[in-house]
Design a protein around this nucleic acid. Structure first.
Lengths: 172, 172
DNA sequence: CTCTCTGCAAATCTTTTGCAGTCCT
DNA sequence: AGGACTGCAAAAGATTTGCAGAGAG
């Protein structure tokens, strides 16, 4: 499986992290949300946000938990789940179900909305965005007097690599 | 064989059934699939297919299990789950996840493909179909050398009724 | 007869919840 | 100080699996 997964220790890759200023902005949003909700700012919550921001997105709670444990072994899964819900609440993350049982978390702040092509063999993900589809969706919702809040479009099938393998395997 | 309590004739429900000829066709497909897979034709499997065909679709395994139990209390959940998988395999049903935890089963044979508007308040479902979106999806898949097998487009939000209620509630 | 089925109970797997101690503010 | 937070263990909810007896072909 070639799921591009973020490694726990990749200090040499730090430059791929969305810039300290950016992360600062997202922390502000998070902490503002906490304050406005009468919730408290804790080191666990901050760490979980940091780790989430450092991933490519598409990470499951378990993936994130493992990354977090590597940084602070005392943080519990429960807190990860609870904090991810908070990130969704304040618009920093969105949940997506990609086919296996678990919920994936994607970046939402300053990241363009996108949909997914999902390879059912290797699990590989391709993101895409189509103005045409987005517009058509709004149009359809309007037709039904429906007020859309969000949507999820997933196209399942075989990615180019797996498709090629399947063909060459059949030729044997 | 546990037929004991189930009556052979279910006359009072017959009018809601999609036409005997149609159901016959679907049974043929199912039994052919069983034969070709070296599996056996059992009364439970037949009953589960019948009940599935009599629903509107969008039923969960649990919903179907309850309907089935009403016709034959001896059938177990396990068999329902296993049989639904078979129906998916042979192309009579498709699985869809509509937001709550459970898997829903929709008719696939002789039913036009469609996508869903899902009300996050009342759970109401609206089916729609858009040629434009379907075509655009194929086009996008092709761009990425991706061979699509199926897709799922769900638009979440408030249906007209729930939206109206929310507005009037806010006005108080 | 043999190999598949079935239903039960137990097991999985992911996510949630009850609780008692701990930490922000 | 006081309510919010945390981590653990247990619970929950949906689906799957091991197994021994029953059934289809």
């Amino acid at each position: 499986m070639h799921r591009s997964k973020t490694q726990p220790g990749r200090s040499n890759n730090l430059r791929t992290i969305p810039g300290a200023g950016q992360m600062q902005k997202e922390k502000e949003i998070f902490f503002d949300h906490l304050r406005q909700s009468g919730l408290k700012r804790t080191s666990q919550r901050e760490l979980i946000l940091e780790v989430f921001l450092e991933t490519e997105g598409h990470s499951s709670a378990e993936d994130l938990y493992n990354l977090i444990k590597a940084r602070d072994p005392l943080v519990g899964v429960t807190t990860v789940y609870r904090t991810l819900k908070l990130l969704v609440e304040c618009g920093l993350a969105r949940e997506e179900h990609l086919g296996d049982g678990r919920t994936r978390y994607e970046h939402l702040y300053n990241h363009q909305h996108h949909d997914h092509l999902i390879c059912t063999i290797c699990g590989n993900l391709i993101e895409f965005y189509s103005e045409v589809i987005e517009n058509k969706q709004d149009e359809i919702a309007k037709q039904y007097g429906f007020r859309p809040t969000h949507h999820s479009l997933r196209i399942f099938g075989l990615c180019a690599e797996c498709d090629a393998k399947r063909i060459s395997a059949a030729a044997v």
